[in-house]
């Protein structure tokens, strides 16, 4: 109905219904915050209780049994867009819930938390889900004394945010100062003589400090690589090629992005060159180099680079 209704049926003050001893007992207990069922002649427990055994039509015994309050979902439906009369104003489930100790199930609303309107049911909503009632503080003796059921607590959400102010360190600061000028710097180790790019201020192999600066070329050779198809918000769009590049003049490969060529044409031994961003965009960051792209040179033989992989 898009416009205002023009006809309303509403009994003033609401219907007054007598509930009888069995339903009455259930609602009275509910008002006190307890869930009860009634035992049938053959020993089963009905929740919500009725005056009769729905299977046989026989009268139930007068024995009331406290059940639950926890229960198990036996079936459910999911309401992605609640209607005004629904007990919840966000997407929720209707569920048949068998309280512990009962042999039958109770229908009630099941609140699974925040969802956007129209959301699909969450995957963990399924038969077997353990739930408990959420009681209203003010109860009047109606099924609405239970506002809804909620899943038992199986997980808590633990948002954690820790803030750091990290420094790159002396060696990295110097390396990035070079990058800011378009130069790629390394250190030569005084013991093994190898050129380490980017420099670390020490040689990991010999455990000695290094300080002799060496500038290396921005061209090099791919020693090995991976084609990445697993997307990650922090990484380049897939597929992207992460490659170990041995820069000319360096003795240690550097992990770098290779682009400007289809991923399936990247090769071990391929010659590449750094693609720099426009000079006016440079800063002390490796982002100055967009990626490495192929050079028009013959591939390097695997024999010559196999010791660098």
């Amino acid at each position: 109905m898009s416009s205002e209704p023009n006809h309303v049926v509403e009994f003033p003050g609401g219907y007054t219904r007598s509930v009888g001893p069995v339903i009455g007992r259930f609602l009275t207990e509910l008002r006190d915050g307890r869930l009860v069922g009634v035992r049938t002649a053959d020993g089963r427990v009905l929740v919500p209780p009725t005056e009769y055994d729905p299977e046989t039509g026989e009268a139930v015994t007068g024995e009331f049994v406290e059940v639950g309050p926890a229960g198990t979902v036996t079936s459910w439906s999911w309401v992605p867009r609640p209607r005004p009369a629904h007990p919840l104003d966000r997407p929720f489930a209707w569920a048949l819930i068998r309280p512990d100790g009962a042999d039958t199930a109770l229908l009630h609303a099941l609140d699974l938390g925040e969802f956007e309107e129209g959301a699909d049911p969450p995957r963990y909503l399924k038969a077997g889900l353990r739930v408990r009632p959420k009681w209203r503080a003010e109860r009047t003796g109606g099924i609405g004394d239970i506002a809804c059921f909620r899943p038992e607590v199986t997980m808590i959400n633990a948002p954690t945010r820790l803030e750091y102010r990290l420094r790159g360190g002396r060696a990295l600061d110097r390396f990035l100062a070079g990058i800011a000028e378009g130069r790629i710097l390394g250190h030569r180790c005084p013991v093994c003589g190898q050129v380490i790019v980017p420099m670390k201020g020490l040689c990991p192999r010999d455990g000695v400090p290094t300080s002799e600066e060496v500038e290396v070329a921005d061209t090099g050779t791919v020693t090995t690589f991976a084609v990445n198809n697993l997307p990650d918000p922090r990484a380049p769009d897939v597929p992207f090629v992460s490659a170990y590049v041995l820069l000319d003049g360096a003795d240690l490969t550097m992990l770098a992005l290779v682009a400007g060529i289809p991923a399936d044409q990247v090769r071990i031994g391929m010659r590449v060159k750094a693609v720099w961003r426009p000079r006016e965009e440079w800063g002390p960051t490796l982002d100055n180099i967009k990626w490495f792209e192929p050079l028009d040179e013959p591939d390097v033989l695997f024999e010559r680079i196999k010791d660098y992989v």
């Binding site: 420094r167 790159g168 002396r170 600061d173």
Partner: peptide
């Protein structure tokens, strides 16, 4: 923060103790 990485902070200490014991 003196602007050093953990490794840069640690390396001189390792260097010193190697020198003092003569062990590498």
């Amino acid at each position: 923060d003196d602007g050093l990485t953990e490794v840069e902070m640690l390396a001189p200490v390792i260097g010193e103790i190697k020198e003092r014991t003569g062990l590498t």
